[in-house]
Every structure is written in structure tokens, then in C-alpha cells.
Computed example of a mutant assay.
Amino acid sequence: MNFVIFTAAAIVVIFAAIQLNKYGDVISQKSTWSGAMVGTLLIGGATSLPELTTSLTAVYIDNADIAVGNMLGSNVFNVLILMIFDFIYRKRKVFNTVEQSTHLPVAYTGLVMTALISAALLWRDAPELFNVGIEMYLLVAIYIVVMKTSGNPEEEADEPTSPITLKQGVTRFIIAALVVFVAGSALAVYGDLIAKETGMNASFVGSFLIAASTSLPELVTVLAAFRIMNYSLAIGSILGSNLFNLQLLVITDIFYRKEAILNVADPSNITVALLGLVMIALTIFALQRTAVKRVGAYAIPSAVTIILYFAASYIMF
């Protein structure tokens, strides 16, 4: 029964998160404060709401492993999504077609942030300030610096105006957000029950089962981008979402008042963090290497990423 409710909650989260993205876009189009940065933050925050509500609920039920695993696992699953599409469309040599200077700074930032998380997990007793790990302060500082130095995103071409009014968009956005809150909370609660009932590692449940569920809205975004051959949008949305998720991990640590959350997380979370580190490194390699003519050689980074993900899943299970 727990699996049935968990699956139902996952389906609801996916549907509601897609609606959040849809109505967030309506708000950014029709509100007077809808500059590019505001729209990006609004929609980015909307698609990341499932991860936030799930992790905060996990904190409330005192399951640090699901809270941490969900955030780290979501980042890993996001990269997996990108690499699966890159492998499927390997003949198009996606990474060879995008502008490196646009994506490499964000990718390297994600690498550094993930390395900080990995180091804190390996340390096991990392310094903390006000019951928040010192690494979390560094994550925020790095994020602020990168956002300031990267400048505002370019304005996109005008899109067809939605027939939905601003008031309707706001109302539906709020309703979808409430649905995500309830369903995301159910994911954490029933994920915790599944871990206890089956004896599965809570880190595995958070890093793979829940993380996959909350990351499926990103799958829809990447699929849409590949369909219109906007590969830069696909890569940018994944790399940017991962940075945002790590900021949500900071919020999770703030709400976990006992002590720094990474100090109490199970050591098995290190596997997910290190996996994320390697997967980001492979993404950077794919971005900055010189153009590859042979399709088989081009597909090596994405193939290795996919294999690593499922190997790590097997090991943690």
C-alpha cells in the first residue's frame, strides 16, 4: 500500500510541477515585474518546489538521509536526463553545437559546489555555525558571486501571448504549488515508510526513488528543448537547476535545527555526492573537448555517465 501511495504522489508531483512551470511562465509574461531575471527565478523556483517540499518534510519527520539524498540525487538524475538524450541523439553531436563560454562557468561552479558537499560528507564532523554547516555558507557565497558576475540572461524572442489572464495564472500557480506541497510531503513520508518496511537504505530511497520522481519535470523541459533543437536551453536548464538545488540544500540545513545536516547524514550519501562529481566532470569534458567526428567516440561521455549511474544505484540498493 505504501508503494501505491508513493507512486500516486509521484505522478501528482510530476503533473503539478508541469502546471507550475506553465503558469509561472504566464505570470512572467503578463506581470509588470516580469523581467528576464524575475521570470527565470520564478520558473526555476517553481520547478524546484518538489525537491524543497520533499526535503523539508523529511527534516520534519527527522529523516536527514532522505532530505540530503533527495537534493543530491536530483542533481545526479538531472545530469542523467541530459546524458540520456545526448546519447539518443548522438548523431547530432549536441555538445559540439553549443557555445562553451555560456555553460562552462555554470558547470565548473556546480563541480566546485559538489566537491564542497563531498568534502563535508567525508569529513563527518565538519565545522558548523549556528547549527548550519560551514560549507553551506560557502555555497551561498559562491552562488551570489557567480550570479553577479554572470550578468542577466539574454532576453528571449517574443512568444505567443497566453489567453490566460494574470489573475488566473496567479490563482492556478498557487493551487499547483499547494498540490506540490501536499504531494511532495507524501513522497517524503511514504518514502520513509518504504525504507523502514523493506529495509532499504534511506539514502537510496531519497537519492534514487524520490529524486527521480521530483526531477521528472526537468525531463519534460529537456525533451521539449531537444524537440525544437534548442540544445543550449536543455544544457542550461539542467546545469542551472543543479545550482539552485544546492541552494535548497542550504535551506534544508537551516531548518534542520539539531546540528549541521551533513554531519548526521549516512555515509552512503558520499556515494551519490561523488557520483555527482564524476558526472559533472564528464559533462565538462563533453562541453570543452574539440569537435569529434566519429559518432561512437562522441558518445563515450554520455555512455559512461549512464553506466555509472546504474552501477551506483545497484551498489546502494
Rank of each mutant, 00 (worst) to 15 (best):
H103P: 07
S203V: 11
L41Q: 08
I134V: 13
G45C: 05
N201G: 08
D86H: 14
L129H: 08
V292E: 14
E259D: 14
T47L: 13
L275A: 08
L121D: 00
G191F: 04
L116K: 03
A58N: 03
L193I: 10
A202E: 13
F317N: 11
N2C: 08
N2I: 07
F87E: 01
K258F: 02
E51H: 10
G206C: 09
V180K: 03
L111G: 07
Q288V: 15
R294A: 12
G73E: 06
W123I: 11
L82V: 04
A225R: 02
G276K: 01
P163Q: 05
S150P: 06
G69D: 01
L80H: 02
A311T: 10
L121S: 06
A303P: 11
M83H: 09
P301F: 03
S213L: 06
F244R: 07
Y89D: 06
T102R: 10
S302I: 00
R289K: 15
I175S: 11
K258D: 14
L209I: 15
A212G: 10
T283S: 15
A303I: 15
S241W: 02
G276H: 00
A312R: 06
I5G: 06
G169N: 09
I251W: 05
D65Y: 01
F244K: 09
V132E: 00
L49V: 13
S101N: 14
E159Y: 12
I11H: 07
